[in-house]
């Protein structure tokens, strides 16, 4: 059995009276592309900060590739690359200097320079290598932060909301790059607010709510959990009484019905025909991760 990339056991953390983490257990295997989802204040960043050594756990154990993050921190910090949520940078240096220094803190010397070139290239930063961090645009700064986390070539990369405030083009480019890293063997853990990102990229998802993991499964299983598909209809006339139990909601001219199975469409159309209600428009909607998320978090969409 291979050693898990990340193993988190019964981790608690409180700030004063607030219990930010309440006994989190989580195991992430090597090579996974894993998403940590949850509303603001769920404890995602706290968990990442503890993993990275920026905070200490109240109790519990965390390990990276088998090394404890508290007792063996020198090892675990070399194994982790962390992209912080905030756009922070050192205004004194240009991108290349900053990356060399960052790699140097981890004990890498000039032998690491080809890797830095590779990262700059991969993130489209080559022509900004000699620009001061201050002069970069927001999207460029974000890329530079990712480059900084990768400077020492860590096998596990943690990204805390890496695409917040980044335009679509840059976002696509970032994900293409991170996907390549993942294919090459890097374990990726990300937190994000964009559900479609987690859905298209990640093989497994954990959902955090008020310091606890409330769902942990493969993305596919989570999507299957919400079996119901939905049918959106624009009708000429009122919904027949026989179909009212299926009604989920109404917006504008459209009415939304819950489907337990796709075959129910036939029954609904038959009922409408029988009631002489014409269908102007019809859409079949699949559940997405956002629905699952809202369902688990206890909201109604």
């Amino acid at each position: 059995m291979t050693i898990p990339a990340i193993k988190i056991e019964q981790v608690h953390k409180s700030f004063g009276k607030l219990d930010a983490l309440r006994g989190v257990d989580l195991q992430i295997e090597q090579g996974e592309f894993f998403a940590l989802l949850g509303p603001n204040g769920a404890g995602k960043s706290t968990l990442i900060n503890i993993l990275a050594g920026l905070m200490r756990p109240g109790s519990g154990h965390l390990s990276v590739l088998g090394h404890d993050v508290v007792t063996d921190y020198r090892k675990t910090r070399r194994l982790l690359g962390v992209v912080p949520q905030e756009l922070v940078f050192d205004p004194f240096f240009n991108v290349r200097e900053m990356l060399r220094f960052q790699a140097g803190y981890f004990g890498c010397g000039p032998e690491n320079d080809p890797w830095i070139d590779e990262v700059l290239e991969g993130l489209g930063l080559t022509d900004k290598a000699y620009s001061n961090m201050r002069s970069l645009s927001g999207g460029m700064k974000r890329r530079a932060l990712i480059a900084q986390a990768l400077a020492h070539k860590p096998p596990v990369l943690v990204l805390d909301e890496p695409t917040a405030g980044v335009d679509v083009e840059v976002r696509q480019m970032l994900w293409a790059f991170i996907n390549r890293l993942n294919k090459a063997g890097t374990t990726i853990i990300l937190t994000t607010h964009y559900m479609e990102e987690a859905q298209t990229l990640c093989s497994r998802v954990a959902m955090l709510k008020q310091g606890e993991i409330v769902a942990l499964d493969s993305t596919r299983n989570l999507l299957n959990r919400l079996q119901t598909k939905q049918l959106r209809l624009k009708l000429q006339g009122a919904l027949p009484a026989s179909l009212l139990p299926l009604k989920r909601g109404e917006s504008g001219d459209y009415v939304t019905l819950n489907l337990a199975a796709t075959t129910e469409v036939e029954y609904i159309l038959a009922e409408l025909r029988a009631a002489n209600v014409a269908v102007e428009d019809l859409q079949l909607i699949e559940a997405d991760l956002e629905d699952v998320f809202l369902d688990i978090m206890g909201h109604q969409p």
Binding site: G53, R74, V82, P84, E86, V88, F89, P91, Y105, F106
Partner: peptide
């Protein structure tokens, strides 16, 4: 400066004792 700017995090993430 690095505390106010926030970039001290890059130092705290390293194995430097």
């Amino acid at each position: 400066q690095s505390k106010v700017m926030g970039n001290i995090v890059f130092l705290l993430l390293t194995p430097i004792s």
